[in-house]
Design a protein around this nucleic acid. Structure first.
Lengths: 248, 248
DNA sequence: CGTTTCAATATGTATATACATAATCGTCAT
DNA sequence: ATGACGATTATGTATATACATATTGAAACG
């Protein structure tokens, strides 16, 4: 078996086999196609599927294991892990899950939805160079009776045109986007701020009250997808992240 | 060359060669022995040094490259990278580097230093079950003339007895600990809070002003080492973290 | 029936090898 | 000088192979 024998003969990008296996599996897991607990094909099966050596498959799976997405057990195989704490917090950031983890009932409410031509600020936030349509959303996440987070979101409609047809009343934009758009990169900015009028009103706190702000920009294959800002009242929220040094 | 031919014949732990190479190099980098820009030995040199195959060395170096600690250039070699945004922010969190990255002069000032038997709160913060001596430090980090961060730190003297002999006037505890104690795990808690009297005084802001709080607990081989709380005035600080899904 | 033993199996780690690719350096001709 | 070109070098990726190790499941045995 030579190096040239890849599936797509019409070469698009020179992506390595090992990278392809890795992202294939990752997508299956993140999309939910392979739920937690699901057994991933054995190394020798993947070896057949991708027509490569075990070493190559092993490298990809080891990496997924180190990243915490899967768990490997000798003699038994590799399994999709339950979503992990720090991963959930900084990668997915699904507020429903956060709230339910607190044992409180979750409720979502869309406040505003505007489709517009992206202005200068919109483009800065999204990191867009060309003009184009964007969707602006404001919504509230409740934990029990109390507002838990105030969300302000921009969606790049050039990247996700289907979003224009969605009202986002029944489903929040976050979960809607996950699964539809496989994100390849995300940038978080975390800071504290004093609540302004608008925010204080939404969160039912005093103006000037300290709030935690988490902003995230997401890309999918170099294209900006969304910019979202979550504002949490200070007392309601702590981000937790656990690290081992440089993935070693 | 057989598998048994390791340096330390008197076996301590069954740690893999690849892990050993990885942590050796990581320690050299994190301790500063190999500063940014320093050229790491070529693969074939490490092959000789560790008496192993190039594949093994390559795997370790590739991993360090993916983790962002080093940069690899064909034909030129591998080099220690400048401390990077998210790595710096969430892994090392060296305030000197943060301040200097802003182009401002850095200054450090130790406010308080108390050695004491750890009380209940100390032990909770450190995650200690048994009682023991701790070192309590309060200090201020300046960017130019302005206070940049207020630091409150507990050091577990059972884990780091040498700290009892250090005054921490010339050097901050963070850089002192790095290089001396190879940390194996860290947990961050990030939240917003209103400045209390003590903090407001130290940071020269109004009481009640919003602040960003970053707390970190660090372990070395299962032993709690230190708990540190950094308080930043809201306007002075944003954490930035960039992710690709599960390190792919 | 319970326990021990053993073979089968999947992963873990390492080897030697091969060829591709990018960057650098010296050489040579213009 | 300077630019083209080819040799050299270090990394990038993949292969086939080997043996270690943990775990499972079934067979053998008391």
């Amino acid at each position: 078996m030579s190096l040239v024998e890849t599936d797509d003969v019409e070469g698009s990008e020179p992506i390595s086999l090992h990278q392809r296996i890795l992202s294939d599996i990752r997508e299956k897991i993140l999309s939910g196609a392979w739920p937690p607990g699901h057994r991933i094909p054995f190394e020798h099966e993947l070896t057949d599927e991708y027509n490569c050596s075990r070493m190559t498959v092993n490298k990809a799976l080891s990496q997924l294991a180190k990243a915490g997405l899967i768990e490997r057990r000798r003699r038994s195989g590799s399994f999709v892990r339950q979503p992990q704490s720090q991963a959930a917090v900084l990668e997915l950031h699904d507020i429903r899950i956060e709230v339910e983890a607190l044992g409180l009932p979750y409720r979502y409410e869309r406040l505003e939805r505007v489709k517009r031509r992206g202005n200068a600020e919109d483009r800065t936030l999204l990191g867009l160079s060309a003009p184009g349509s964007v969707l602006w959303l404001e919504s509230l996440h409740f934990a029990g009776e109390r507002p838990f987070a105030f969300e302000q979101r921009l969606i790049n409609l050039s990247a996700v045109p289907e979003a224009a047809d969605e009202e986002f009343v029944e489903i929040a934009a976050g979960p809607w986007l996950i699964g539809r758009v496989p994100w390849s990169e995300a940038e978080h900015r975390i800071r504290a701020m004093a609540a302004d009028e608008n925010t204080a009103d939404a969160l039912d706190v005093d103006p000037g009250a300290p709030c935690l702000v988490v902003e995230r920009r997401t890309w999918s294959a170099e294209h900006p997808v969304t910019h979202v800002r979550f504002v949490y009242p200070a007392q309601s929220h702590t981000l937790v992240a656990r690290f081992t040094p440089s993935q070693g």
